[in-house]
């Protein structure tokens, strides 16, 4: 296959620009192109796995990880996702029947408690770790959440 022309690269850039993807890796023969949208993959929750020695091939990015892109596409669920720091049963309110810690439209600070995760009768409070406005609540009250699962979305400020 012949080498990529400048026009080809411009076309690819245009395609990526219009897409929802943050990253693109392309290999054609000996030519390798890596594109990354500004800010993508820089989030504090990027999987440590990515540091694992992976000769030749880089680990596949995790689609579910937080991607704090300043994308102007604000529909519901936009913004950055706050992941569960550990596996356990998620509680969105301090006690049964009480008002939830946060709801859509609330302002959170990095140290705002957004929920509780119970592991073997031990209650762990979860903080937002980001400042902004809550745009969506993903995790259900009283249900198991996995490590890394999105709990809420916050539109950072």
């Amino acid at each position: 296959m012949s080498a990529l022309t400048r026009q080809d690269i411009n076309d690819i850039l245009a395609l990526v620009d219009q897409s929802d993807f943050d990253e693109l890796r392309l290999e054609i023969g000996d030519t390798k192109i890596e594109l990354r949208r500004r800010g993508a993959g820089q989030s504090g929750v990027a999987a440590p796995v990515a540091e694992a020695p992976a000769p030749q091939v880089a680990p596949t990015p995790k689609p579910s990880e937080a991607t704090p892109v300043a994308a102007p596409v604000v529909a519901s669920g936009g913004g950055s996702e706050v992941p569960a720091p550990l596996l356990g049963t998620y509680y969105s309110a301090p006690k049964p029947g009480a008002a939830p810690f946060v709801k859509v439209g609330d302002r959170v600070e990095p140290d705002t408690v957004i929920g509780i995760i119970e592991v073997m009768k031990l209650m762990n409070s979860v903080t937002a770790d980001v400042a902004g406005i809550v745009t969506a609540i993903h995790a259900e009250d009283g249900v198991l959440v996995e490590h890394g699962q999105a709990l809420i979305s916050v539109q950072p400020e």
Binding site: P48, V49, A52, L86, L87, G88, T89, E118, V119, M120, L122, L144, E146, H147, G148, Q149
Partner: peptide, 19 residues
Amino acid sequence: CLGPARATESYLSVGTVVE
């Protein structure tokens, strides 16, 4: 997903496994 790669925080975490 139980937790991070380190086994003590995932495969060896009794509480997490039972939960």
